[in-house]
């Protein structure tokens, strides 16, 4: 492929309130099919970076090319069409608690549904079948009509994954997908992401807290510190010195099994 799939160039984000600089002049690129893990301390700008890519957060400066298109310059209507192709899952799952699991999964099709149908909640039969199939895929077929707030944390995140699957994404942004989960559930969720990456060829950008998870699942790792890129390379290349550089002198590595 001539051009990398995703190119981030000189990306800077300054939050107006409090003049906080979240990202400073960040540049990197991602090839199609990579599983890129972003690591760093809390507040190092991981979430902001992911949100700049689908413009949930407006970048202050810099360019982001997705498949050769500069998404930072798109009008909001065209941005919506780009967002359809970018799935996203969240640390706090961000499900609609009062809606059923399948209701939540169906919202993944909103980008493809005409506005009036969306307002009335009329999703097509094909979408409904697809939603059930995706729930089946994350192992929640029997919970389809259960309200989201009745589900456990891991189940909720799997609903989030099914919602992202509905978009048939090319790119998946995962913002600390397992931070709110216990270790065992974390692995099951990460395995679904890995499966999407391997089987469907979805490019994955995941921010993670634990280095062990990053090493286990990532094909490449970038590290942020105070909004700057401090590491970019294969998982194996992070040794003890690198680790201290990223997480500070005090830090100890914790294993998640």
């Amino acid at each position: 492929m001539a051009n990398p799939y995703l190119v981030v160039e000189n990306l800077t984000k300054v939050y107006e309130r409090g003049q906080v600089v979240a990202l400073r002049d960040l540049s990197f690129s991602v090839e199609k099919g990579e599983f890129l893990v972003v690591i760093g301390l809390s507040g190092s700008g991981k979430s902001t970076l992911l949100r700049c890519i689908n413009r949930l957060v407006e970048p202050t400066k810099g360019k982001i090319y997705l498949d050769g298109v500069d998404v930072t310059r798109l009008s909001s209507a065209r941005m919506r069409r780009v967002r359809r192709r970018i799935g996203m899952i969240f640390q706090q799952f961000n499900l609609i608690d009062r809606s059923t699991a399948i209701g939540n999964v169906l919202t993944g099709r909103l980008g493809y549904t005409p506005a009036w149908r969306a307002l009335l909640g009329w999703f097509s039969k094909a979408d409904r079948d697809r939603a059930l199939a995706n729930l089946e895929r994350v192992g929640l077929r029997d919970k389809a009509y259960v309200r989201a707030d009745q589900l456990s944390g891991g189940q909720r995140q799997r609903v989030g994954i099914a919602r992202a699957l509905m978009q048939e994404p090319e790119l998946l942004l995962a913002d600390e997908p397992v931070s709110a989960l216990d270790p065992a559930t974390s692995h099951s969720v990460m395995q679904y992401l890995e499966q999407m990456n391997r089987e469907d060829g979805v490019t994955v950008l995941a921010s993670l807290h634990f280095l062990s998870l990053a090493r286990r699942y990532g094909t490449r790792i970038i590290a942020l510190k105070d909004g700057q890129l401090v590491f970019d390379g294969p998982p194996g290349a992070i040794d003890d010195t690198r680790f201290k550089e990223i997480y500070g002198e005090e830090a100890e590595e914790v294993e998640v099994r």
Binding site: R51, N54, L56, R80, R81, V82, R83, R84, R85, I86, G87, M88, F90, N94, L95, T107, G108, R109, L110, G111, Y112, A115, A118, G160, R163, M166, Q167, L173
Partner: peptide, 9 residues
């Protein structure tokens, strides 16, 4: 955020 990210209007 989540719904916006799906490309919804």
């Amino acid at each position: 955020e989540a719904i916006t990210a799906t490309g919804a209007g």
